[in-house]
Amino acid sequence: MTDQATDTLRAAEHERERMRQEIIDDLDEEIELELQEDGLDGSISESENAFRREYFRELVRLQTELVKLQDWVQATGQRIVVLFEGRDAAGKGGVIKRITQRLNPRICRVAALPAPTDREKTQWYFQRYVAHLPAAGEIVLFDRSWYNRAGVEHVMGFCTDEEYEEFFRSVPEFERMLVRSGIKLVKYWFSITDDEQEARFRARMEDRLKQWKLSPMDLESRRRWEAYTKAKETMLEKSSIEEAPWWVVQAVDKKRARLNCINHLLSLVPYKPVPRPEVVLPPRVYHSDYERQPTPDAMIVPEIY
């Protein structure tokens, strides 16, 4: 083998190693997320460790399928809306984070609306949500949705009884209209137990990185657990329609809930792999008169790690 061939082989091996490290770095981000959430102190049983390995394998596999779904949605001009509802600390944000983690934010975006403004309160109730619906080739994940009226607004007294009843008269027709327009509408309720919510709240109280997640409204929801339960039961009964039924995710186990929800979402959409054109990296253009200018030391971020 000539020296040139050897150098070429070494360069190719070096490039493959760089790509491998890039993939590992991406996976490490997910692992760091899980370690942070679990609060592991280094003591983990072999059975727990085995499940974690299986969880990561399945999550990456499902995220690969989500990329295929994204490509299909973009190529075919589909429009998908997924609603995530559930009690505070039920795990909605966790599954949304795993769904979007590998996807293009220009295609799959999250809508998490704040409390309505004074002006929005005078509008048609669904108006501010309509503005976030997808165009062709887009997926929108609602982290809480128009079902705020059926839950927190009703329980906390932020709407009148007349507005509450009108919501249930309107929402089936509103959602049928969305479906008739060509939108695929999927609705998930994340279900946890009383004890599990209390445990997650107490964990947040102890974790400085998560204390911001606890709002006065969250704390009040603990006191009104039974009222929220009744509101949830009424919501599922009155707004689960054939065109857009409710799906309940058993969410006491966060990791299993994420896998089950993503797997179920994929099963509801008849996506197919979209052929991708071969990507050819063009050669870099060199100019003999180009001279790279040094970066001033004052602009360099200190390398303390």
Rank of each mutant, 00 (worst) to 15 (best):
L268K: 14
K213Y: 06
V73L: 08
V152N: 02
T295M: 14
T160F: 05
D28Q: 13
A244S: 12
R222E: 01
V280G: 01
I107D: 03
L259D: 05
S221C: 08
S221I: 02
E242I: 07
L219N: 05
A5R: 12
A251K: 03
A90T: 05
P302S: 04
E162M: 07
G91M: 05
L27V: 15
I23P: 00
I183K: 03
R119T: 13
D28I: 14
I31N: 09
A11H: 10
Q4T: 14
V67F: 12
V274L: 08
E54N: 14
I23S: 09
M156R: 06
T8L: 14
W212K: 00
I44P: 00
P172L: 10
E153N: 04
E15W: 01
K187V: 02
L141M: 04
A150N: 04
R256N: 01
F168S: 05
R61V: 08
L33C: 01
V130M: 13
F158H: 10
K210C: 04
Q21E: 11
L113H: 00
G151H: 05
G93S: 10
R144L: 06
P296K: 06
V248R: 04
G157F: 09
A50M: 13
D25K: 15
S170V: 11
W246Q: 04
V82T: 12
M235F: 04
W72V: 07
A89H: 01
W189Q: 00
